[in-house]
Design a protein around this nucleic acid. Structure first.
Lengths: 358, 358
DNA sequence: CTGAAAGCGCTTACAG
DNA sequence: CTGAAAGCGCTTACAG
């Protein structure tokens, strides 16, 4: 039951501990004969390297921490996969924590990870995280860290993720060009950096094209299901519909689509709908959802690389891109001169026609 | 930069290392006066507990490993969140690895985790994992482990996840009752345990109600997008459509819906479509997808508990449940006598009308 | 109630 | 090329 240590291996092979240690790390100072003898002993005894003991002595943990708000948003899941992959391919072990979007829990997880002596932490912060929270944990511990996907108001450094302002601008301009004059924004938690930036960008983009943000619908917690409920409330009292509704993210946008349908309205035909993120499901919904691609794979990979290089304070944006789909085709209808033979002439579905950000 | 250790704290407080250690672990043998003096020293020096050193000495790592095939399937993402939550609330740290559904990579990750001396491993195995792969890693290391969500042919023990046979049976019977006489199964990798069990159950359920499995469409790798392509090929050559198409999982089922639409067919009306898992998106698609709920939260939580209790070899099933939605309403159409005022009279949407498994 | 010593399984200089 | 010794930061008996 008890696993053999290098002491046992050394005795079995008739060498010293130090020699075994050198063999373990493939030193080229040990002649082949000794090496193979030691290796045979390891096999014979069923030796398993104890990485933690090694790291303890050498004072490097070769470990990274990832704390995410939740896993239900496919964007976050994909990010997590990318971080795990990058950590792995660099020989790092990844500790995962899930805050359930609660700051107190997040702080406890961070603390535990710091006690574990991770070399760095990638944090997808809980919605209500303040810069003070970060100061009292990551900064105070002088730990290399990077925020992914969500930046925090008042905490400018070490962010890797979409530039939400540019993303909003891309979408705003697109909607304006499609003929949207009044646009509503739905979902997200007000006061948070991503929401603020997306709205700011949206307004800028709309202004370029003659549209405007007509309302800012109240927000809710659980995107997929709550957006639908809240929207029902708002639309119920509204006398006129906006030309377009932009969800805080794709999950909200899906909820918006449902809310519209439950009122007998067809998204894309009666009201344009758009989101942010470009989760895989965006292309497979009906109609496909026009959204801004936030490239989670790239964000996760770059955040990890940044962490690994222990680069100092930097702010890094992942390029965003419009992902055009049918959910915004109503504007197209009004403006396209020839509608036949197919709508596709106006906007290809799933074609990822791209309009890159500057 | 270098963090203070208990030696520094002890010197600062004028006590021995052992006393500091006892204070750290809240021993009640130390009088309050000493405790608070020591604690003040810790604060003064900015002491941070080194969990790894402690675990090294006490030979318990308080660490669990989770290796998942991928994160893109929302079912897996939710499972991961549940495992993370349960590990956390039991004071365990979670190491995460992602195999990208490749066995060789999975084996390397397992090895690394074993070297890290995790106390146990939860494995959502890569598709082509054999029992031999498990023998040579987890079993040989005599490590507590549990398979989640996917069982492996020939490896009977330590599985927590849906009983796919029961799940298939539930769905088969439902489809038969809806009037389906010919049913096609699409997707998954042939030879794998979950696919085999789902099909076997489906056949049983159909037999009870006069239906039959008409074909077993070839499988593909990437559910969401590939299912659509493969189905196009198959349907293109087929002269008659089946009454229903069952996807290997919900992601495949979504692909099936798209494939049908791209041929001008409306899922739910022209052909019934169903899946397995009940990912959140199932309810928000249009039409909502009828599927069998596999309760990922529960599976993740129970797997973790099982691991923590280090119970020996057991096989544990998570209860499954039919999740009825409109994607199977065509059968309803044929059979319901009164169709008005609403289809809802036949099958409530999102109501999670449940038919529990025995 | 508190301290001195040994030890967890490795690595790291330093000799030879 | 290989060994003896010290040490990573804790905990654990064992004294007193």
């Amino acid at each position: 039951m008890k696993r053999p240590t290098i002491v046992e291996v050394a005795a079995h092979a008739g060498v010293s501990k130090a020699t075994v240690s050198l063999v373990l790390r493939g030193s080229d100072q040990i002649p082949e004969g000794t090496k193979s003898r030691v290796r045979e002993s390891m096999v014979a005894l069923g030796y398993v390297y104890n990485r933690r003991a090694a790291e303890m002595r050498s004072l490097r943990s070769k470990t990274l921490g990832l704390v995410v708000a939740n896993m239900r948003n496919p964007y976050f899941a994909e990010l997590t996969q990318a971080v795990a992959g990058r950590a792995y391919s660099n020989g790092f072990t990844l500790l995962l924590g899930c805050s359930d979007d609660e700051v107190s829990r997040q702080q406890e997880i961070l603390r535990a990870m710091i006690e574990h002596r991770v070399d760095g932490i990638a944090l997808l912060p809980a919605t209500r995280t303040t810069s003070r929270d970060l100061e009292s944990s990551l900064v105070q511990a002088e730990l290399a860290h990077v925020l992914i996907a969500r930046s925090v108001v008042g905490y400018g450094s070490n962010y890797v993720g979409p530039d939400n302002r540019v993303a909003g601008r891309l979408l705003g301009r697109h909607l304006g060009e499609k003929g949207a004059r009044s646009v509503a924004f739905a979902g997200g938690v007000s006061g948070t950096a991503p929401r603020r930036d997306r709205i700011a960008g949206l307004v800028e983009g709309l202004e370029l094209t003659g549209g405007r943000l007509s309302s800012d619908l109240p927000s809710a917690r659980d995107a997929l299901f709550e957006a639908q409920r809240e929207l029902n409330g708002v639309l119920g009292g509204a006398s006129t519909l906006p030309d377009a509704i932009v969800g805080y993210n794709d999950m909200y946008a899906f909820g918006v689509m449902n809310a519209l349908r439950s009122r007998g309205l067809e998204p894309g035909r009666d009201v344009m709908v758009a989101g942010f993120d470009n989760v895989p499901e965006a292309a497979t919904q009906h109609p496909g959802l026009t959204t801004v691609d936030g490239f989670p794979q790239r964000a996760g990979a770059e955040a990890t690389e940044l962490l690994l290089r222990t680069l100092g304070a930097r702010r890094q944006s992942v390029r965003v891109r419009l992902s055009l789909n049918r959910s915004c085709e109503s504007g197209c209808r009004r403006r396209c001169t020839k509608r036949s033979p197919a709508m596709e002439s106006c906007e290809p579905r799933n074609a990822h026609a791209s309009r890159r950000s500057d």
